[in-house]
Design a protein around this nucleic acid. Structure first.
Length: 914
DNA sequence: ATGGAAGAATATG
DNA sequence: CATGCATATTCTTCCAT
């Protein structure tokens, strides 16, 4: 190679990552310089190119770092490494297994070949499958022009103006794939499909049987019965095989019927054109030839294959005589080593362009070099990389093919023209979640980690993930998490907009079938789990983190705020915790918002109750400082207690219960209702909820209506009251102005505290400061209790009309949490109609409750059958003026054509995230 | 030290 | 004018114990 990719050419950086990758069959002897010039000319200056440049420089830096490291290596280190290498080499050599016969089969130009088969006009011209922006495959004709897979169509067109680009038709490819897999299965029922067009087979057993296989069963007929007109396609040359023909049901016949009755022959004679037969031998080569023959007979497509003692070699071999050829590597050590000798490392699966370049910088291009430099590589690369290199240099690879286990992730992503509109972004996000959810449903999967992927118009990629305590699957759940992730990113660049070109959502952390049950358990099990967890924390023998049957430690993981809301609607166990946003100072490194979550959560748990996990100290504080009526809210629990045990621990400390019921606290007006009759109580709640909506409509006065919200006095009391011991802070604004307060929350200059945004509504923002004490005055740095763990922070709303509400609660019980007076379940939820429906259900199912214990908040669909509910909901919708009671599940989602906000840009953002 | 989680990067077809 | 999608794995960094 004279013009090594990555070297300098005419003083200009030549991008190795952009240049033509011609290590592909059918691309030998091309005018690379010319092709590369065209590629460069089409790319230069584009955002894509700029990003590639950036990435290239990163790689170069990595290489530089590596070379510096190399310079500091001492002889001593090197000889020590050498010893390591020798020892390891010996070990590996000892374990070398040449007994297996592994085959790698690979269809030739698969997608392109299928299209050509089905459209004869394409056969004689250069064509590719894909689009103007990306090609999946090209036929061999097109490859002569440098047109290949993973090349954008518009560049391919420049290389080859006559190129025909055919859109992909995956259903068709899948169908063909199924056909060839049937054949594979005859040779190895445990074959490993790598993609639609590729598979590994272990034919060792088949070969054993084959030696005693009657000749008739190795006899295959050839029917000259071209299915789509044309004779030989561009890719069909050599190997003595004839034109594409079709023989129906060949494989079953071959292996299941007696040879004498082979209809194959009859058919052939019937065909008139004279059916030839071919007898295949018993060797590995013959077996593979037979397999390829059958593939061609069945599909009119050709395949190439490699035969070798392990997968790594078989893969390389299958490429050797592409297309429509095969290569066998004898199963002896010398043959393997000879084969490896000059093999470019890049040919080995797993060595990509970056590794190739890094190795190249050390003078390693072939596998022999690799073997020679193993000691050096030991010092410069990671253990795993080094192991990989060593295996390669010895010609070793997996000898037992194993079907892939369970899938580990599932994702969907979409590329589009620049998208900056929040509304669009959010709705796209939802769409993706919906698609993903549907896919998950097909495989009955539920996952715990949701990852949002964003690529901006400069091709910079970001991923943001959140792991939940329980597995989720529905659109709403996924969206709840994804939109929070998205919102965080939007907030992080605000007031600028995210200019996206791609968005994706991924789910991982699937629970196995065995794990699913516990995760879908009712809230009873959920809480019992929490109890078990915290008790085991205390016990000296700490259990290993979940074996299969042990459900995940749900108390230790953060939950996504919106998810709580969503799961509420889905009637699934909710998780009493939340995520946060770090409000960083300008210039300060924005630490990952979620990374902090876990830490802070643990912290809060420690605060709550390190010794007994019951949160007693907190509870004491709570009782001492909350509104007196509140104290009676945790009443009515005869049933609930029986089921959950009398305490809820760990992350659920807040649900600690007290006893003696004589009144119930209305979660709406916060007043004690002097009754224990739940029906009466329910009526009260209903009244509260359907209370005068008129004033409420006027947003500025939202907080003024005690009849509906009734919180003002209470909260004012709290502001002046238990301030010192405040642990959770909730800040409510009755206008949209809070957007200021959310972002511009006034931290004093040394505060690095994390303010968590609990929920951002149209009308309120709920913030949580974790374990932070609020000084009475800007100067007073009251360090109390939990504050020893966190810096002090001074909070001000920055909005004259906002009302700071300080509420003494344990961490896991802050925010707009409502406790169901019936089942005692507290949940973050400020949608009163939902809450009311829950209460209704609880009441209606009192009997059930007695029998089965508390259940999760139920799905609205199952609960809002009655017209009364509907009415109330409508009322409430008016009352809150937020559309909060809109049921995402059942009502057709309105295309958020709500009036654009009066307020700031922020305001509108918040609206989208409802 | 070790281990988990998140995030970026690498690789494959 | 303009560079995809799905999946897996590895490496690095940060954090907690």
């Amino acid at each position: 190679m004279m013009e090594t990719v990555g070297s300098l050419s005419k003083g200009k950086m030549f991008l190795s990552r952009m240049a033509l990758n011609d290590n592909k069959a059918g691309m030998e002897g091309l005018n690379r310089d010319k092709i590369n010039k065209i590629i460069m000319d089409s790319s230069k200056g584009s955002r894509f190119y700029e990003n590639e440049l950036k990435k290239e420089q990163q790689v170069n830096q990595r290489i530089e770092k590596m070379l510096q490291q190399k310079a500091h290596i001492t002889e001593q280190q090197l000889s020590k490494a050498k010893a390591q290498v020798e020892k390891m080499t010996l070990d590996l050599e000892k374990g070398r297994d040449l007994s297996r016969v592994i085959v790698h089969v690979d269809m030739d130009a698969f997608y392109a070949a299928v299209e050509m088969r089905d459209c004869p006009e394409l056969k004689d011209q250069p064509m590719a499958v894909g689009s103007m922006s990306m090609l999946s495959t090209s036929n061999y004709h097109a490859r002569k022009f440098g047109v290949r897979a993973a090349m954008p169509g518009f560049i391919a067109k420049k290389l080859c103006p006559n190129l025909v680009i055919v859109p992909a038709n995956f259903d068709k490819y899948r169908a063909v794939s199924a056909e060839i897999r049937e054949i594979f299965a005859d040779y190895d029922p445990n074959f490993l499909p790598m993609s639609l067009d590729e598979a590994y087979l272990d034919i060792t057993e088949h070969l054993e049987q084959r030696t005693v296989l009657p000749e008739a069963l190795r006899t295959h007929c050839l029917r000259l019965h071209p299915i789509s007109g044309g004779t030989d396609g561009v890719e069909k040359q050599g190997d003595g095989l004839q034109t594409p023909v079709e023989v129906e049901n060949l494989s079953p016949l071959l292996f299941e019927e007696s040879p004498s009755s082979s209809p194959c022959l009859q058919d052939a004679s019937l065909g008139g054109a004279g059916g030839d037969v071919e007898v295949f031998g018993t060797s590995a080569e013959e077996a593979v030839r037979e397999m390829r023959f059958r593939i061609e007979q069945k599909t009119s497509l050709t395949a190439s294959a490699g035969i070798a003692p392990n997968m790594m070699l078989a893969k390389v071999c299958s490429d050797k005589n592409k297309p429509n050829g095969q290569y066998i590597l004898p199963s002896n050590r010398q043959a393997v080593m000879d084969f490896i000798q000059d093999l470019p490392v890049r040919k080995v699966s797993g060595i990509g362009k970056v590794t190739e370049k890094m190795l190249g910088a050390l003078g390693v291009t072939s596998c022999t070099h690799l073997g020679q430099e193993m000691a050096l590589l030991f010092l410069l690369f990671s253990e795993t990389s080094w192991q990989q290199f060593l295996h390669i240099s010895l010609g070793l690879g997996p000898t037992h093919i194993q079907r892939d286990g369970e899938r580990k992730s599932m994702s969907t992503e979409r590329t589009f023209g620049e998208m900056s509109e929040l509304e669009e972004q959010v709705s796209l996000c939802r769409e993706l979640c919906q698609d993903l959810s549907q896919e998950m449903q097909k495989e009955a999967l539920k996952g715990k980690t949701v990852t949002l992927k964003l690529k901006n118009v400069n091709f910079e990629v970001k991923t943001r993930a959140w792991t939940l305590p329980c597995a989720i699957a529905t659109t709403e759940e996924l969206f709840a998490v994804a939109k929070d992730l998205l919102k965080t990113e939007i907030d992080n660049v605000s007031p600028q907009l995210l200019r996206l070109r791609l968005m994706g959502v991924r789910v991982s952390g699937f629970v196995s079938i065995d794990d699913k049950k516990p995760l879908q358990r009712s809230i009873v099990g959920f809480f019992q789990q929490g109890r078990r967890d915290s008790s085991s924390q205390m016990s000296p023998h700490k259990p290993v983190n979940e074996n299969q049957l042990e459900p995940p430690d749900q108390t230790r993981l953060p939950a996504c705020p919106s998810l709580v809301q969503a799961s509420l609607q889905q009637g699934q166990p909710w998780v009493p915790s939340r995520g946060e946003v770090e409000v960083g100072r300008p210039g300060q490194q924005q630490l990952s918002f979620f990374r902090r979550v876990h830490a802070q959560r643990l912290l809060s748990e420690r605060l709550v109750s390190p010794e007994n996990g019951q949160g007693t100290s907190f509870q004491t504080q709570l009782d001492a400082t909350t509104d007196p009526t509140d104290r009676h809210s945790r009443t009515k629990k005869h049933a609930a207690d029986k089921m959950t045990g009398s305490t809820l621990e760990g992350g659920s400390t807040s649900l600690c219960s007290d006893t003696e019921p004589d009144s119930l606290s209305c979660p709406v007006c916060f007043r004690a209702v002097n009754t224990t009759d739940l029906t009466v109580f329910n009526t009260h709640i209903d009244l509260c909820l359907s209370g005068p909506p008129t004033e409420v409509k006027n947003q500025p006065d939202l907080m003024r209506d005690p009849g509906v919200w009734g919180r003002e006095e209470v909260e004012k009391d709290r502001v002046t009251g238990g301030m010192e011991d405040t642990v959770g802070l909730r800040l409510n604004s009755c206008t949209g102005d809070h957007t200021e307060s959310a972002a511009g929350l006034l931290l004093d200059e040394r505060s690095t505290a994390n303010i968590s945004i609990n929920r951002v509504d149209l009308n309120s923002v709920c913030l949580n400061t974790r374990g932070v004490s609020i000084p009475r005055s800007p100067d007073a740095n009251a360090v109390k209790g939990s504050a020893q763990y966190e810096p002090c922070v001074q909070v001000s709303s920055g909005c004259p009309r906002s009302l700071a509400m300080l509420k003494l609660e344990s961490y896991d019980h802050r925010g707009p949490a409502l406790t169901c007076p019936v089942c005692q379940v507290t949940q973050e939820c400020d949608d009163l109609s939902l809450f009311n429906r829950h209460v209704d259900l609880c009441l209606n199912q009192e009997v059930l409750l007695e029998l089965g214990g508390p259940r999760p908040f139920d799905h609205p669909a199952t609960t809002s059958q009655s017209a009364a509910h509907e009415e109330r909901e409508q009322l409430l919708q008016k009352a809150t003026h937020k559309g909060k009671s809109r049921r995402r599940g059942s009502s057709p989602q309105r295309p958020s054509k709500k009036p654009k906000a009066l307020g700031t840009a922020r305001n509108t953002i918040d609206r989208f995230f409802r």
